[in-house]
Simulated scan of single mutants.
Amino acid sequence: MPDPLAETGATAVCIGEAMIMLAGTPGTALEDVESFRRSVGGAECNVAGGLAALGVATSWVSRLGDDGFGRQVLRDLQGRGVEVGGVELDPDRPTALYVKESFDGRSRMHYYRTGSAAAAMDPGFLDRPAVQDRLGSAQVVHTTGITAAISATAADMLTRLAEASHDFILSVDLNWRPVLWRDKDPEPLWRVLRAADVVLIGADEALVFAGTKDPAELHERLGGRCTLVVKDDAHTAVVLEPGGRRTEVPALTVNVVEPVGAGDAFAAGFLAGTLQDLPMKQRLRLGHLTAAAVLAVPEDHAAPFEPEVRERLLAASDEEWAATKV
């Protein structure tokens, strides 16, 4: 069966930070780790890779240090089919990194991103011809609250992106990180969320950020014009559309290896389904499927299930879907 998500000609642009991830030996305290496994992480670049893996022509736009870590990010994303011609290299600021410390299947992240090249993004970054070209041809542009939090200038950039006239679908994943917002006013993030066409929020983070995880209350606080996706961890995902129509799909049962990156994978699946104009139930199912593939591996990203598996499960009955285990 041909994969309807492949060769669609759809174009997505992801704007945001990428980092080098250094993972220590599971069960070993950071001070006792002798060697680290290196890979590439970051919310927006994870989504970019996920979209590309689903056959969506995708560009990732950002700034990196003109250093070995930056070159590894570019090489990694290109290897995953992501176009990176809109990336700007900074000779003075470094590529950010984070260290993952894991115990009993749970991970703690240590971030080293202050003064990074990505944090120097500002509204003028959007004026670069390479960025304008990509935004001008985009059908969907995706970013997250993490980029709004890494610096005041990056927040200003996203505000300008959200408030400018555009033809693309603007997608924003809340990705609320309280540590990044310490002593900062989150109002710039609220402005970006209220201007978005698609908003993705985890129920747990919504409760902290907005004081509620009720989809209807959240939708109202966001102005009611967006397509709101509320993900309730391993339980369910709910969509509220601008007209108020509600769609809910339970998550798959997964033998979880590592949860980091699953939210980004869900976003990639949902957006790929949106670009394909799938029914809302199938968009949510595709989000769950791409998230499940990441949950089942120790990395922040994973290859999606084979097209025939995806198509079978997208078309499955509710009973067959509920009985599926990964």
Rank of each mutant, 00 (worst) to 15 (best):
G261S: 08
A316R: 10
L240D: 10
G211T: 06
D185A: 05
E258R: 04
K281G: 12
E217F: 05
Q139H: 08
S171W: 00
Q132H: 11
A48K: 00
A268Y: 00
E319C: 13
A162K: 06
M19R: 04
P298L: 10
G79P: 06
A23M: 12
T11D: 07
S317R: 10
V230K: 04
P178M: 11
L218I: 13
V260A: 07
W321M: 09
V73M: 05
I169R: 06
V56E: 01
V249M: 02
N46C: 07
L289D: 03
G68Q: 12
R194Y: 10
D204K: 12
V131W: 04
R177L: 11
G24N: 09
V199D: 01
E31F: 09
V33F: 06
T324F: 14
M121R: 10
G105T: 04
A292K: 03
G41Y: 06
G70I: 05
A203Y: 08
G24D: 01
E311N: 11
S62K: 02
D32T: 12
D127K: 13
L126Q: 01
P307K: 10
V297K: 02
L295W: 01
V13R: 10
L30K: 11
W176I: 03
E319Q: 15
G211V: 07
V199E: 02
V56H: 06
M280Q: 14
T28R: 15
A118I: 06
V84F: 06
P26G: 05
F69N: 14
E88D: 13
M1F: 07
S116Y: 04
W190P: 09
G244N: 11
Q276I: 07
V40W: 07
Q282S: 11
R134I: 13
E319Y: 12
V256G: 03
V297W: 02
D104F: 13
F209T: 06
R246Q: 15
K281L: 12
E187K: 08
E17W: 05
L284V: 11
V56G: 04
Q282K: 09
E220A: 15
Q282G: 02
D318L: 09
D204I: 09
R245F: 02
K184Q: 15
M1C: 09
A154W: 02
L289T: 03
D67Y: 04
V131L: 04
G42T: 03
S102C: 10
H288G: 09
F305P: 00
G124C: 05
R37M: 08
V256I: 08
T114N: 14
Q276H: 14
V199Y: 06
E34Y: 03
Y98T: 05
P242G: 11
P123F: 07
E34S: 13
V309A: 14
A53W: 01
C45P: 11
L275V: 04
L77C: 01
I150F: 13
I169H: 03
A138F: 03
G16Y: 09
D66P: 08
L64D: 08
S62V: 05
A118L: 08
W321P: 05
R160Y: 08
Q282W: 02
I20R: 08
P242K: 11
R106I: 00
F209V: 12
E248H: 00
W190E: 04
V179G: 12
R75A: 14
P94C: 13
T274F: 03
P94A: 13
A43Q: 00
V309W: 06
E241R: 15
G49L: 07
V249G: 08
R310M: 00
A292M: 04
K100Q: 11
V326G: 02
T143M: 07
R108Y: 08
D300A: 09
E163P: 03
L222N: 09
Q132C: 12
